[in-house]
Amino acid sequence: MTLAFKFFQIVGEMSQLVRQIWSEVRRKPLYLQLIVEQVLQIGIKSFPLIMIVVGCVGMVMALQFGVSLEKFGGKMYVPKIVSLSIIRELGPVLAGLMMAARVGAGITSEIGSMKVTEQIDAIRALGTSPIKKIIIPRVVGSLIALPILSVMANTVGVYGGLFIGYADLGLDPQFYFQKMISTITVSDYLSGLGKSFFFAFFISVPACYYGLKVTGGTRGVGKATTRSVVTACILIIMSDYFLTKLFLTLEHWISG
């Protein structure tokens, strides 16, 4: 089987899964309790990791830009650069990547283990749908949790920059905050938030797909988990360019 054939086969099967999710999500019963459980689980699982990573990146950026721009007398631009980069780009992307590693891997290994122990078949044999019981709660849970986590990550990242701006670069926190507020627009915030919905989709769908496709026992679970995380990371990074382009075009179009 050629690589191209395999690629198109995976794309086709994933599209089929999305079609199934779309058709079943509109039909009753929708297991709201399972969705709420997933939102909480995904949120709680990823929260510390995402906050630490984005907070630290905010701090590092402030330090790097502060030291570099100081040579040209541009230290006062640090609040603008750091907050804009975090809110438009790094907050959602890093939150997505961390969630892919933490939650995407978890979803694939959980579903994969259920597959090899015949629990997925048991759900079907008991007259219920694995798409409704297992897949939809995880996909919808991710679509709700990641944007919330991104908003929190943005805040922590920006405050990380502010802390270093004050502690290391000697910038006044009020000045930092003022510059940040005057720089960030609603469209910047919405652009970052919009991306996080797409990223959640790119994490949860491959994670569920690879979980359902597991064969070959526990070794298969390991392989599927790796594939799921790699696929999600690639999709996040690749789509980020196109999404940035899309949101910039939309902003230009809306502002006339």
Binding site: T117, E118, Q119, D121, A122, R124, G127
Partner: peptide, 15 residues
């Protein structure tokens, strides 16, 4: 599937 039950070899219980 409501009329025909299937007993899996290893139980297939939801862990």
């Amino acid at each position: 599937r409501k009329k025909v039950a299937y007993v899996f070899q290893n139980g297939a219980l939801f862990d």
